[in-house]
Computed example of a mutant assay.
Amino acid sequence: MTNAKLGEALRLLGLDHAASRVYLALLELAPAPLGTIAAAAGDLDEVEITAAYGVLVDAGLASAAERGADVVAPVPPGAGLEILARHRAAEVEESRIAVSGAFDSFRRQRLAAYNDDLVEVVTGDAVGPRIRHAWASARDQIRQFESPPYFPLPGATDDALATLARGVTQRVVYSRASLEHPGHVRDVIEPCVKAGEQARVLAAVPVKLVIIDDAYALVSLSIKEADVHNTMLVVQPCGLLSALMALFEQSWQNALPFHGRTTRPGGLPPEDRRLLWLLAGGAGDDVIARELGISRRTLYRRLQILMARLGAANRFQMALRAQRSGWL
C-alpha cells in the first residue's frame, strides 16, 4: 500500500494529518528515538510531535516511550483499529441522526405553509436510480405490490437479495401476471423467497407499489396497454401514505401464500412442492408446465398422482388438503 493510500485510510479512521505523518514515519524507522521520528515526519515542532504521538498511543497504534528512554515503536493495531472503527461508526450515526432531524424540522416548517412537496413525480432515466436508492435506504421492512410491466433495471434482483441479507423484512404480494411473466418465477421470485422473502399472490394487485419502512412509498404510473413504466410518484408521510400502507396490509391478509415452510409429511419432492405453489398462486397449466420444464401431459400425470396421494377428487380438494397437510 502506498503512503498516500495508507494516509487516507488513517484519515478515514479519524486520525489527523500530523498523527498520520508520525505513524508513517514509525512504520519506516521504528524502533527509534522520538526525535528521529519527528525529523522524518516533517515540519512539526516539539509540541506538535508530542501531541501527535500521544494521539497514536491513545488510539492503541503506538507504544508509550519507556521512562528514561526515548525509543518508540508501533504496536499490533488490531484492538486499536477496532476502537477507532467503533468511534467512527458512532460519529457517522450521530451525523445521520443530526441530518435527518434537520430535514424533518425543515419539512415541518415548510408543510406549515406548503403542501406541494408531499408527492414528487419522477420520470424517465431518474426512475431507476431512485428505485435502487430506495432499496438501499430500507432499515426495517419493505412492502411491495409486484406486477408487470417491469422497469428495465439490471441488478434489481441482486439489490433485493442484498437487502434481505441485511436483515430487512421483505413482504411482497405478486399478481398472477407476475407468475405468468416468462422466467420471472425462476429468475426473480424463487431466489428471493429462498433468501427469506415472504411472498403471497393475488389475482391482481391494485397498483404497483413499494413502501420503504414507514417513511415513504414509490407508486408506479404504468401504462399496461403500451407496456410502459416510466413515471413514478414518491409519496412522503401524509394521509395518502397511511392509506397505501393500509391497502397493502388488507391485501396481504387476503392473498394466498406462494411459498411457505412445510413439514412435508412423508417427504415431498421439490418439483412437486413447486407445482403446488404455482397452482395455489393461480398459474395456468401452460405457465406451470413451462416453469417446470415439462409437457402438459406430464403435468396432468403428476397432478393425478398428487390428488391420489392426498385422496382428493379434484384440484380444489387437492389444494385444501395440501394446505392442511402443511405442504403449502
Score class of each variant (00 low, 15 high):
Ala126Thr: 08
Glu91Cys: 05
Ala30Pro: 06
Leu26Asn: 12
Leu34Cys: 07
Glu94Asn: 13
Glu66His: 02
Ala38Pro: 00
Leu12Gln: 15
Ser95Met: 03
Ala19Thr: 02
Glu93Asp: 15
Val92Phe: 05
Ala18Val: 04
Leu56Pro: 15
Val22Gly: 12
Arg108Ser: 15
Thr50Trp: 00
Ser20Val: 01
Val75Gln: 13
Asp43Lys: 05
Glu8Val: 03
Tyr23Thr: 04
Glu46Ile: 00
Ser20Gln: 13
Val22Ala: 04
Arg11Gln: 15
Ala18Pro: 02
Ile97Gln: 14
Pro76Phe: 10
Gly128Ser: 03
Val127Arg: 07
Arg108His: 13
Ala40Asp: 09
Arg132Gly: 05
Ala64Ile: 00
Leu111Ser: 10
Val119Pro: 02
Val99Tyr: 15
Leu34Tyr: 06
Ser63Thr: 08
Arg107Phe: 12
Leu24Glu: 11
His87Ala: 10
Ala51Leu: 08
Asp104Lys: 01
Tyr53Met: 09
Leu12Glu: 15
Gly35Trp: 06
Arg108Asn: 10
Asp116Pro: 04
Val127Gln: 11
Pro77Phe: 06
Val55Glu: 15
Glu120Asp: 08
His87Gly: 14
Asn115His: 13
Glu120Thr: 14
Ala19Ile: 02
Ala98His: 05
Trp135Asn: 11
Thr36Phe: 10
Val22Arg: 07
Ile37Gly: 11
Ala64Asn: 07
Leu34Ala: 10
Gly54Leu: 01
Leu13Gln: 13
Arg110Val: 01
Ala89Gly: 03
Ile131Trp: 07
Ser100Pro: 04
Arg96Gln: 10
Val119Cys: 04
Gly42Asn: 04
Trp135Gly: 06
Arg21Trp: 05
Val119Leu: 02
Val127His: 02
Arg108Leu: 12
Val47Glu: 15
His87Tyr: 03
Asp116Ala: 10
Leu118Tyr: 14
Ala89Leu: 05
Val55Leu: 03
Arg11Val: 04
Thr50Asn: 05
Asp16Tyr: 06
Glu91Asp: 12
Glu66Val: 04
Ala32Ile: 10
Gly78Pro: 01
Ala38Tyr: 02
Phe103Asp: 12
Arg88Tyr: 10
Asp16Ser: 08
Gly68Pro: 09
Asn115Lys: 08
Ala59Lys: 11
Val71Ser: 14
Gly54Asp: 15
Asp116Ile: 01
Leu15Ile: 03
Ile49Trp: 00
Ala25Gly: 13
Gly35Asp: 15
Leu81Asp: 11
Ser105His: 02
Glu120Ala: 08
Glu94Ala: 15
Ala79His: 03
Glu28Tyr: 03
